[in-house]
Structure formats: structure tokens, C-alpha cells
Simulated scan of single mutants.
Amino acid sequence: MDKASVPDDPPDWSTDCDWSQLQADMLLRIVGTLEIPDLFSSGAVCRSWHLIYLEARRFRLCSPKQSPCLVYSSGDRDADTVTLHNMSTNKLYHVTLSEPAFRTRHVMGSSHGWLITADERSNLILVNPATGAQIAMPPPETMNNVRLRYTEEGVLDGYDVLYMDILSSDFDTETEPYHLTLEEARFFFYERVVLSCDPSQGNCMVL
């Protein structure tokens, strides 16, 4: 080959290629091989990548090596850090959440990749442990028959649950309310919580 015909510099593929125009089936195969943090990050690259990312999650087209992760609060990390332990690869991923601290919450359920947690005041908070996204649900006192209870010093002490006639929806004012501590309320108000879909997709119902 004539040496003069060989280009001096190799082409700059980073500028010549439009990665957003990759074929959908090829991109889907690539996304399916990614580790958990990279998988979620791929959805933020551009619109076309985000659509493929949603398809991969919807049809669970992740790599067979991606086993479900254990999610917990590790003792060697801060209280606001979530640890994801991939049992297949034995890799650990750490995600820092905003307040309240993850270690102080009780997990009431998991659905569509999200955890449903109850904090120390029994407020429900949806948590995506892989992305760190959180969604606060209406607090218990928004229920018609639930009242906040305070001490004489004005410190929140728990909840009072008024007895209610289910048919008439009238409160029984003669019967003593059921008193709950903040800790007891978590298990009184919620037995198990599930989601109708991924909350990030909108129109999600929490049951």
C-alpha cells in the first residue's frame, strides 16, 4: 500500500458518530448488559436512549448476571446511605438519600423497583434505591379519623384514631380514641403497600 494513501490521523469517532441514532435492537442489547448504576444512567443520555431504557426495564431485559439486589443500611456507612448488594457479582453499590435517614425507616413493601418506606412519624416515602429518587405520600393525619397527639409541652407523641361507622362515615365521639405511639402507627396504618406501576412513569396508584 502506498504510504501516502494512509491518513495521518485516525477519524474522531466521538464527533463523527451520532450515538442517539443507534438501531433500537442493538441499543437494547447493549443496555441489557449494563451494571445497575450504568443502566439507570443510560436513561438520561437522550430521548431515544430513555425510551430503550424504559423498554428494558418494562420487559426485564437485563443481563442474566443481574440478579435481584439485597437492599439494606450497612453499619459501616452513614445512616442516610442505602447499600445495594448484587448477589450474582458480589458487588456493592452505595446511594445516599436525603432525610429522613434510611436507617430509621421501616420497609413496608417493594414494587416495580421501588421501596415503600415508613419513617419515624409513619409517613410513607417511596424510594428508588438505585437512583436515589424519593416521593413523599400524604401523611397519616390526612385520614379523616386520625388526629395528631401532643404532650403538654407541645411535642408530638403519637396518633389518636377515632372510631368511625363505616356505613354512615360518622365518628363515634363517645368511645375513647385508640391511642398509638409513632412506632406503633407504622404497623397499624399499613400492613403491606404495593404500587400499580413505576411512579416515575406517572399515574401510579399506591395501595
Rank of each mutant, 00 (worst) to 15 (best):
P139Y: 00
V146C: 01
A130F: 08
R147Q: 12
P100D: 05
A136L: 05
T131Q: 09
S169W: 12
L115E: 04
R60N: 13
T175H: 11
S168N: 07
D157C: 08
L61G: 06
P129A: 14
P68H: 10
S73V: 13
T117K: 01
M87T: 07
A79P: 00
R57S: 08
R60L: 13
T117C: 15
F171R: 00
V146M: 06
N145C: 05
C69S: 09
R77C: 09
T175Q: 02
H106C: 05
N86V: 08
L115H: 00
P68M: 14
V127G: 03
D160V: 00
T81P: 02
M143A: 05
R149A: 00
S122I: 06
M164T: 04
S67D: 08
M137K: 03
P140V: 01
M143L: 05
E153V: 06
Y159C: 00
R147L: 00
D78L: 15
A136Q: 05
T131H: 10
A130D: 07
F59C: 08
L162N: 10
H85E: 08
I135E: 01
E99N: 14
I135A: 11
A118T: 11
I135V: 14
G109T: 04
W114A: 02
P140C: 07
P140K: 07
L70G: 06
L115R: 02
A118R: 00
S67L: 14
T89G: 01
V146N: 00
D80P: 03
N123I: 05
P177C: 03
P177T: 01
N145W: 02
A56N: 03
P68Q: 15
P139C: 07
S122W: 04
S168P: 01
W114Y: 15
D157R: 14
N90A: 15
G109D: 02
Y93A: 04
M137Y: 12
I135Q: 06
F102V: 05
G158A: 09
G154C: 09
Y93R: 14
S122G: 00
T104L: 12
Y163D: 03
W114Q: 01
E152F: 00
A118W: 04
P100F: 07
G109R: 04
N128C: 07
V161G: 05
